[in-house]
Design a binder for these strands. Structure first.
Lengths: 202, 202
DNA sequence: ACCTGAACACCGTTCAAGT
DNA sequence: ACCTGAACACCGTTCAAGT
C-alpha cells in the first residue's frame, strides 16, 4: 500500500532492537512480540521480516547488544590488584548487571530459542571478549606453558558465575538475591583460587 | 456436550503430564501445547484447565517430575569414598542426565515461566533433597560448627554444576559437549575442594 | 460434577499486491 | 526496492451450555 523511505535500513534495525529492548526489560521475553514492535515503531509486521529472518534471529541480535552492554560495564580491573581481587571486582559488576537488567540477561540464556548449526561467529566473538577478561585476571597464576588450563579455568569461573546468578534470579527479592549471589561467588573465588595455587607450579 | 468418567482425576493428571513429558522430550518447550496435549489424550482443552490453573502451572508440575527423575538417577555415593570422589560420581551422573534429557532439563530453568510469589513449598523441597546429596558428600570437610559454610559450599557447587551444564547445552554436538562439561566440572571440583582444605580448620 | 467447544484475544510468518 | 496487510495456521484461556 504505502511507500516509505522515512528510515534507512540501519535506522530501522536500531528502532526495532530499541523497542525489543524496551519490551524485554519491561516484561521479559514473554511480552516481546513482533506485532507489538511493528505497531510501536509505526511500520507493518512484514517490515520486521525484512530485517530479521525470524523471531529467534531478532532475539539473537538483541542478545548481541546485551553482550555489548555487559562488556562495557565490565571495565578491565587494574593490573596492580591480585588475580583474586580482580575476579572479585569483575564478579561484583557482573552480579549487579544481571540484577539491574534481569529480564534482558535472562534472555541471553533462553532455552526456547532454536539456533540452527550453533551460534554465529560474530556472537561467539562477543562471548570470547568477555571470557578474555577473566582469563587476563587469572593469568598470573599460570605459567605460560599452561594456556589450556588457564583457558579452562576461565570457562569454569564464567560458567559458575552464570550458574550462581541464574539460580539467584529465581528469587524475586532483589536485595536478598544480590547479597546471596555475592556471598556464593565470593566463596567460589576464594576456594577455587586457593586450589589453583596448590596445584599450579608457580 | 459429552460426559466422561473414563478416568479419575489422578489418571488424567498422569496422562497429561506423560504427554507433556513426551512433547518436551521431542521438541523442547517450544513444541509443548495444551491443545496438542488435549487432542492426544482424547479430551478437550478445557479439561486441562480443570487440572492445572494455567500453562505455567502445568510446566511447573512437569518440572517437579523431572526433579524426581533426577533424584532417582543420583544414587547416594558410598561413604567410603573421599568427598572429592563422591562429588565426581554425583557430577558425572548429573552431566549424563542433563544430556540424555536435554530438553526436559532445560525446561527446569525456563525464564519465560511466570511464578507468582516464588516457587511453591513442595517444589523447593525437591531441590533441597538434591542439595542434600552434595551437602552429605562434602560434610567430612567441615567441622560440625560450620554448617552454614557447608550449606553455602553445597550451593556453590550445585550452581556451578548447573552453569557448566547449562552453557554446555548450547553446543549441539552431544559427545563433545559431554566431555567438555566433564572436564570443567572436574577442574571445579579439584580446585574448589583443595581450597576448602586450605581454609577449613580440619 | 465433569466435560465440551465456541469465542476471545492474541501469536509468528508469508506473500501477492501496491507504490 | 520497499512496504503493506490480509491470510494462514497456530496459540492460552474462559465460560455458558450440555449431560
Amino acid at each position: 500500500m504505502a511507500r516509505r523511505y522515512d528510515h534507512s535500513r540501519e535506522e530501522l534495525y536500531e528502532m526495532i532492537l530499541n523497542e525489543a529492548h524496551r519490551q524485554v526489560m519491561d516484561g521479559g521475553l514473554r511480552s516481546l512480540s513482533a506485532r507489538k514492535i511493528a505497531k510501536e515503531i509505526g511500520y507493518s509486521v512484514g517490515t520486521i521480516y525484512n530485517l530479521f529472518s525470524n523471531f529467534d534471529d531478532l532475539i539473537l541480535h538483541l542478545n548481541g547488544r546485551t553482550l555489548d552492554l555487559l562488556f562495557e560495564n565490565l571495565s578491565v580491573p587494574p593490573e596492580t590488584l591480585d588475580p583474586e581481587d580482580q575476579l572479585r571486582e569483575l564478579s561484583m559488576t557482573y552480579i549487579k548487571f544481571t540484577r539491574t537488567n534481569q529480564n534482558l540477561w535472562n534472555c541471553l540464556f533462553d532455552n526456547r530459542l532454536l539456533i540452527r548449526d550453533g551460534l554465529p561467529e560474530w556472537y561467539n566473538k562477543k562471548i570470547d571478549k568477555l571470557l578474555e577478561l577473566i582469563e587476563k585476571a587469572i593469568a598470573p597464576l599460570f605459567s605460560s606453558l599452561n594456556s589450556l588450563e588457564r583457558h579452562q579455568s576461565a570457562w569454569v569461573l564464567w560458567c559458575s558465575f552464570h550458574g550462581i546468578c541464574s539460580l539467584a534470579n529465581f528469587q524475586s527479592d532483589n536485595e536478598e538475591a544480590t547479597t546471596y549471589a555475592a556471598t556464593l561467588t565470593d566463596q567460589l573465588i576464594t576456594n577455587y583460587i586457593a586450589g589453583l595455587k596448590v596445584y599450579q607450579p608457580q
